[in-house]
Computed example of a mutant assay.
Amino acid sequence: MSVTPLAAHISAPSTPAFRGRIGGDPRSGHYAVPRRYRLHLSTACPDGLRIAVTHSLLGLDKVCPATFLPAVPDSPQGGHSALRPLYEASAHRYSGPAVGPVLSDDWSGRIVSTHAPDIMRDLARRFGADRLSLYPCGAESEIDAVERMCAQDIEGAAQRAGQSGGEQAERDAALETLLAALGALERWLVGREYMIRDQITAADVELWVTLVQLDTVHRDHLDACAVQRIADHPTLWAYARRLAAHPAFGTHLDLDGIARRHHARCRGLEAAGAAVQILDWAAHAAR
C-alpha cells in the first residue's frame, strides 16, 4: 500500500542535544536490558505525549519505567530542574535548558537520547517487538511520510496560519496548505480504520497527537471560520475520536496541562476560533 498522497517536503529538523540509540548488540554500549532505562516526559508536550502513547501501546511500564514531569517547566532556562543533574552528568558544563522528553540510562546516570522519534523506534524495536508491531516491516517510508506531513503541512502550517503579525496573504496560504493536508487525510481514511495497516502503527500515534494539538492549541489563534473549515472533515475527526477512546491514547490526555504549557510559552493573540471546539477530548482525558 502506498501513501504517496501524504508525501510532504522535507525540512531540516532541529538538532537534539543527545541522540544515542539502544542497540541489539551488547557491544553497542546501550543494549536492551529490562529496567535499565527510564523515560522522563510530560504528556502536555506533543513529543512526550507521543512517547507516552507508544509506551502504553507496548505495555512497557515494568520494562522501561516512566517518570512524568510537570506540564510547565520550572527552570529559568525553560527546562525542568529535575532533569538538570542528568544533563550535567551527560555533557561537561552543559548550559542549555534541561528539556524533556529524555531517555536515560539508570546504570550510568546519563542521558541516552532526547530525540523523540528515535526513542519511539527503540522502544518498539528493542523492547516491544513481540508485543505490537508499531513499525511493520516495509512500512518505514509510509510512516516517515505521515511524520513529515504532520510536521510540515499540519503543525507548521497551523502555526503560520495563526501567527500574529506578518502578511495576511502568507497566513491565508498557510491555512490553505493545512486544509489541503486535512482534505488528503479525509479522503485517505474513507473505509480505513487506521492510517497504513489494519492495526495501530506509529503513523496513527503521530497523526493523533498532531490532531490533538490542532484542536487544543492551534485553534486558539485561528478565526471561527477557519476552525469550522478544519472541523469539516468528519472522517478524519471520527478517526481521532476512535483513537481517543483507546486506553493507550485517551488516558494520557492532560488537557489542563496542555493549556497551561501553551499559555506559558505563547504570547500570541487569542482568536475567535478558541470558542469552536472540534472534539470533546475531555470525555477521554485521564485528568
Results as ranks from 00 to 15, higher is better:
residue 46 P to I: 01
residue 24 G to K: 00
residue 68 F to I: 00
residue 159 Q to Y: 01
residue 29 G to Q: 05
residue 48 G to D: 10
residue 19 R to V: 03
residue 210 T to P: 01
residue 145 A to D: 14
residue 155 E to A: 02
residue 7 A to T: 14
residue 84 R to W: 06
residue 170 E to F: 00
residue 67 T to Q: 12
residue 121 R to K: 11
residue 9 H to R: 14
residue 155 E to F: 00
residue 230 I to P: 14
residue 190 V to C: 12
residue 212 V to T: 12
residue 278 I to H: 15
residue 232 D to V: 09
residue 56 S to K: 02
residue 132 L to S: 13
residue 141 S to A: 15
residue 191 G to T: 03
residue 210 T to E: 00
residue 114 T to N: 12
residue 179 L to M: 08
residue 33 V to G: 01
residue 205 V to L: 03
residue 266 C to G: 04
residue 91 A to W: 06
residue 163 Q to S: 08
residue 224 A to I: 09
residue 108 S to K: 04
residue 132 L to C: 07
residue 118 D to E: 14
residue 148 R to H: 08
residue 203 A to K: 00
residue 264 A to G: 14
residue 138 G to L: 05
residue 50 R to N: 12
residue 202 A to C: 09
residue 59 G to C: 06
residue 41 L to H: 03
residue 257 G to S: 04
residue 108 S to G: 12
residue 235 T to I: 02
residue 149 M to I: 00
residue 118 D to C: 00
residue 264 A to C: 11
residue 145 A to H: 08
residue 78 G to T: 01
residue 274 A to N: 04
residue 273 G to Y: 01
residue 4 T to K: 11
residue 251 T to I: 02
residue 37 Y to C: 12
residue 218 H to W: 05
residue 82 A to G: 07
residue 212 V to S: 12
residue 30 H to S: 09
residue 99 V to G: 03
residue 115 H to F: 13
residue 72 V to L: 07
residue 196 I to E: 13
residue 282 A to H: 10
residue 251 T to D: 13
residue 233 H to P: 00
residue 12 A to N: 13
residue 157 A to L: 00
residue 180 A to I: 05
residue 228 Q to W: 07
residue 253 L to Q: 15
residue 239 Y to D: 02
residue 73 P to Y: 03
residue 208 W to Q: 09
residue 115 H to C: 11
residue 265 R to S: 15
residue 193 E to M: 07
residue 174 A to N: 10
residue 250 G to V: 06
residue 13 P to R: 05
residue 204 D to W: 03
residue 38 R to C: 08
residue 282 A to K: 13
residue 263 H to N: 09
residue 105 D to P: 09
residue 109 G to W: 13
residue 145 A to P: 07
residue 143 I to V: 05
residue 175 L to Q: 13
residue 17 A to I: 07
residue 97 P to K: 01
residue 55 H to N: 06
residue 245 A to Q: 13
residue 150 C to V: 01
residue 258 I to L: 10
residue 202 A to I: 04
residue 272 A to W: 01
residue 15 T to L: 15
residue 132 L to N: 09
residue 242 R to C: 14
residue 169 A to M: 13
residue 256 D to W: 01
residue 199 Q to P: 07
residue 59 G to E: 04
residue 97 P to A: 08
residue 246 H to Y: 07
residue 236 L to R: 10
residue 254 D to A: 13
residue 232 D to N: 15
residue 71 A to Q: 04
residue 95 S to Q: 08
residue 50 R to Y: 06
residue 191 G to V: 05
residue 84 R to T: 13
residue 39 L to Y: 02
residue 181 A to S: 06
residue 209 V to C: 03
residue 178 L to P: 00
residue 21 R to K: 09
residue 82 A to K: 05
residue 183 G to I: 05
residue 270 E to R: 04
residue 102 V to W: 05
residue 84 R to N: 07
residue 186 E to F: 00
residue 22 I to A: 06
residue 145 A to W: 02
residue 44 A to P: 11
residue 32 A to C: 06
residue 36 R to L: 02
residue 25 D to S: 03
residue 212 V to G: 12
residue 22 I to T: 03
residue 190 V to L: 14
residue 269 L to S: 11
residue 73 P to F: 05
residue 287 R to Y: 01
residue 36 R to T: 04
residue 188 W to C: 04
residue 222 L to D: 14
residue 123 L to Y: 02
residue 63 V to R: 10
